[in-house]
Amino acid sequence: MAVLVKKRSSTATILLLLGALYCLAPVLWVLVAASKSSTELFSTFTFAPSTHLFDNIADLSNYRDGLYWRWMANTALYAGVGALASTFVSAMAGFALAKFQFPGKSVVFNMVLAGVLVPGVILAIPQYLLLAKVGMTNSYWSVLLPSIISPYGIYLARIFAAAAIPNEVLEASRVDGAGDWRTFVTVVLPMMRSGLVTVFLFQFVAVWNNFMLPYIMLGNDKLFPITVGLSGLLNQGAQQPSMYTSVVTGALLSIVPLIALFLALQRYWQVDLASGAVKG
C-alpha cells in the first residue's frame, strides 16, 4: 500500500497566516486604539497600547446618559426578536413548501426565488415611502417588521425540511391523532433544529449589520441600532475630534457580542449554499 502521509506545505501555512493577519489586523487595532487617549490616538505608534480603556468606556457610557447602551439594547432587540420571528415564519413556510402538494406551490416558490435575487436593501426607500403613508416610520416596528420576512431563510428552511423530515414520521404523527399544528411544533421543529439555527444566525447577522433600513426609517436617536448610532458619532467626530476615542471604543464594544456568538456557534456556519445542507 502506498503511503499517503500528507506532506506539510510551508507555502500553504504562510499564505493562510498572511490571510489571518490581514483579517485580524483591524480587529487588533481597534482593541489597541480603544485604550488610547484622544491625543495618543493620532500621535503614538498605531499598534502601541495605552492605559485609557476604562476611561474611554466611562466617557462613552456617559455620553448623553448612556445612549450608547440604549443603541446596543435596541440592536439586540432588532436582531434577536427579528431573527427569532423570521426563523419561525421561515420554518413554517419552508415546511409547507417541502412537504405538501397544493395548487399555487410553484408560484409561491418562484416568488421566494425572486425575493432572494432582489435583496431587501434596495427596497428600503420604497418601504419607507409606504410606511410613511400609514404613519409607521420612526418606530421599533418600522425596523422590526421588514426584518422578519427573509426569502433566503424560507429557501433554506425548505431545503432543511425536505432533508430532515421523513414522510413516515409525519404519517406516524398523524396516525397518532396529532393535528398538523401539533405535529409541526412537537415533531417538525425539533427535527429541523440544527438547520434552523443556521437560518437564525444568517438573519441575526443580517439584521445586526443592517444600516440602510434603520438609517432611513428612524429619526429619533433613542431608537437607533448600533450601526446608525456609531455612524452618527463618527459624523460628530468630524467637528469635534475628541469624540473619536468614543467612536473607536464604541466600535470595539459593538463587535464583542457578535464575535462571541460566532466563536460559540461556529459549527453551525458549515453551510453549503448550493445544496443548503448543514454539515458537521
Partner: peptide, 23 residues
C-alpha cells in the same frame, strides 16, 4: 486561520468601514 479569516463576517459593514477608515 479558518476562524481568523471568517471573523470579519461578524463585523458590521459600518464598523468595518470605521476601522479601516481610521487605518
Amino acid at each position: 486561520t479558518r476562524t481568523a479569516i471568517f471573523l470579519p463576517y461578524a463585523v458590521p459593514a459600518v464598523v468595518a468601514s470605521l476601522l479601516w477608515g481610521f487605518l
